[in-house]
Structures are given as structure tokens and as C-alpha cells.
């Protein structure tokens, strides 16, 4: 873990507002929204985090003591040194926009589309930001906490076929 702490230390040096925490052996850094692309570029280019394992989001609407609405999660891994690092970016309601990381990792393409589909977070500069899992005409972002589990009746809005007209 020594080299990972080195990475985090130099990241803190370069970007002033980076906060670090650790839980069960996983190191996390929280990067401010304005600097997230630079920080990720730096992590990929200089520290060799060449794989974006996953990109997801958490909606903290009902979370106890939460101050921010959304938290993006970038799970990074480096093949060379066998390290893993979690990068968090916190977002709040009016400005749900972050730069897309598709230029850095090609694999982010569909993951960002999924986060847009499920949470409604806009990725600036994404080549093809459309809904991916839900139909185009769907209006809500279902993984937000204010969307009910059973939906708002979208699943019932279809014509009924009977024996006679089939």
C-alpha cells in the first residue's frame, strides 16, 4: 500500500481540495467537481491507473447526515502495480454536469450512458449520450431516491391484445 499512499499524497499536493479516507482496505479520494477531469487525467497518465473498473453513482437524498445530493464513483485499477483507487465526485442539484472521461477510458462510454439513464447526470463531451437501458420516451431517472420502486404506471401503458383481434 505504500505506493498507493504516495499516489494519494502527490494528488493532494497538486489538487488542493482532495480529501482522503479509507475503509476496509479501500482508499478513497474525494475530488471537487471542477477539478475532476484533471485529477483523473493525472491518475491515468502519471500514476498508471489504466483501467476504469466501474463508474457509478449514489443518490444521497435520504442518507443520514449527507450534505451532497449525488456522489459519482470512479473505481480505478492499475494493471502494472495491482492497485485500486476509488475516486468520488460530489454533485448538487442545479449543476449536474461533469466532463466525460471517454477520451481517457473508452470503456466509460456505456457506463456514463447508464448513469445518465438512471440518475440524470450529464457528461459533457460524451460522444453519444442517449438512454441505454430504458426506452427513449421514458421521462424519469429511476434510480433516484424520489422515484418509487413500482414506477409511476409506465409498465401498464400498453394496448391489450385479445384473441379476436390477434
Amino acid at each position: 500500500m505504500s505506493s498507493l499512499s504516495k499516489v494519494v499524497a502527490s494528488l493532494k499536493e497538486r489538487f488542493s481540495e482532495v480529501a482522503e479516507s479509507e475503509f476496509r482496505g479501500l482508499t478513497r479520494v474525494v475530488v471537487p467537481q471542477s477539478q475532476c477531469f484533471e485529477a483523473l487525467t493525472c491518475l491515468k497518465g502519471e500514476f498508471g491507473f489504466d483501467m476504469l473498473v466501474d463508474l457509478t453513482c449514489v443518490d444521497y437524498l435520504n442518507f443520514r447526515d449527507a450534505t451532497d445530493r449525488f456522489g459519482l464513483v470512479y473505481l480505478l485499477a492499475s494493471m502494472e502495480d495491482n492497485l485500486r483507487l476509488t475516486v468520488r465526485v460530489m454533485l448538487n442539484e442545479p449543476d449536474l454536469t461533469v466532463p466525460s472521461v471517454v477520451p481517457l477510458w473508452e470503456g466509460a462510454n456505456w457506463m456514463e450512458r447508464e448513469v445518465w439513464d438512471m440518475f440524470g447526470i450529464l457528461f459533457e463531451g460524451h460522444p453519444d449520450l442517449r438512454r441505454i437501458l430504458l426506452p427513449e420516451e421514458f421521462e424519469a431517472h429511476p434510480l433516484r431516491k424520489d422515484y418509487p420502486l413500482q414506477g409511476r404506471g409506465e409498465r401498464h401503458n400498453f394496448p391489450v391484445l385479445t384473441r379476436g383481434e390477434a
Binding site: 429511476p142 420502486l149 413500482q150 414506477g151 409498465r155 401498464h156 400498453f158 391484445l161 390477434a166
Partner: peptide, 15 residues
């Protein structure tokens, strides 16, 4: 799967 995306029984829409 009693969720927003799953049709609750196909017999609602086809015989």
C-alpha cells in the same frame, strides 16, 4: 420483479 420496468404478467396484454 415488482419494479418499474417489468410487466406484471403478460396476460394483461396478450391471451
Amino acid at each position: 420483479f415488482d419494479t418499474y420496468a417489468v410487466v406484471q404478467g403478460i396476460d394483461r396484454f396478450i391471451p
